[in-house]
Amino acid sequence: MQLTGRITPDNLMSLEAYAKWRKAHKPEVVAHRKLRTVPLGEHVSLQFESETTIRYQIQEMLRLEKIFEEEGIQGEIEAYAPLVPDGSNWKATLLIEYPDVNERRRELARLIGVEDRMFVEVEGHERVYAIADEDLDRETEDKTSAVHFLRFEFTPAMVQAVKAGAGVKLGCDHRNYPAHTSITPETLASLASDLK
């Protein structure tokens, strides 16, 4: 899978080429995604996206849906490409997970607005709160969604600090889910590569 900085129909693999590539490289992509996943408390995790994770997602959708026509391919690109970080930000998929269906229903009702209370704090700088669900609202008056898409936008000084090795915390200050954690150095090294 060649990273080009921009996902287009011309630089995606054909279904046949992807099937061969996938057999050999799926474990690498799974490891990359795992490295970029940060658990926050018991029930929330953020999967920080990259060109690699989004290319893989698009290729997987094309494979599963057997999409090979240009219009369908373009539709998948338009759906997922906005999730690739673009140099001044991190983009993440927020997952809220409760195995028991009744507990999940109850907690999603208690967690309305949680996506807007997620933050990243670069050492020595103000918190940056997530800009959530820019494509569509994923919340009703009764409950929040179990999946949200977040963007954390950084100032140039924050970008420089992250690239220079500053510590970074991930947190949530929602009244029903207060949590924070330090992002590990290994994960932070991968995330720093998204910044320019």
Rank of each mutant, 00 (worst) to 15 (best):
E51S: 08
E28S: 03
P178Q: 14
F119C: 01
N102I: 03
W90I: 00
F152M: 13
S190H: 07
K26I: 02
A31L: 10
V29C: 00
L94P: 03
R104P: 09
G124Q: 02
H174S: 08
S190V: 08
H43N: 15
T187P: 11
R36H: 01
F48E: 10
E69Y: 11
F154V: 04
A192E: 09
G87F: 01
E51A: 14
L83C: 05
G167M: 15
V162H: 09
V84F: 01
V29Y: 04
A81K: 11
E65K: 08
A24T: 07
C172P: 11
A81P: 04
L188T: 11
E123M: 00
R127Y: 01
G167S: 14
E123D: 09
A109H: 11
D100W: 02
R151T: 15
A189S: 09
K196C: 04
R110P: 00
P82N: 06
A166V: 03
G75S: 12
H43E: 15
V120Y: 04
E16I: 11
K23T: 01
E134G: 11
R117V: 00
D135Y: 08
Y129W: 00
H180R: 15
E126K: 04
R138M: 08
S14W: 09
I96Y: 04
V147F: 05
Q59L: 12
A157P: 11
I54A: 13
L83Q: 13
G75W: 14
I112L: 07
M13E: 01
I67P: 03
G72L: 08
V30C: 04
E65Y: 12
H43V: 13
E97A: 11
V120S: 01
W21L: 00
D137F: 06
G72I: 03
R6C: 02
S182H: 15
V128Y: 02
E153L: 12
E186W: 00
D173N: 15
R127N: 00
A132N: 05
G124E: 02
L170H: 10
R104I: 14
T4G: 05
I131H: 01
E123L: 07
T184S: 15
E141H: 09
Q47R: 15
L136K: 04
T53P: 13
A92T: 05
M1L: 07
L46S: 10
K163Y: 06
E153T: 06
D194Y: 05
S145R: 01
D137P: 05
L40D: 10
K34S: 07
K23Q: 00
E134Q: 08
P178E: 14
Q160M: 12
A79V: 07
Q74E: 14
N89W: 07
H43F: 10
G113C: 05
Y177W: 07
E28A: 05
L108I: 02
P27H: 04
V168D: 10
E71A: 14
A79G: 04
R6G: 01
T155D: 01
Q47G: 12
E134D: 02
E97V: 13
I54V: 15
E70I: 08
E65Q: 06
F149P: 02
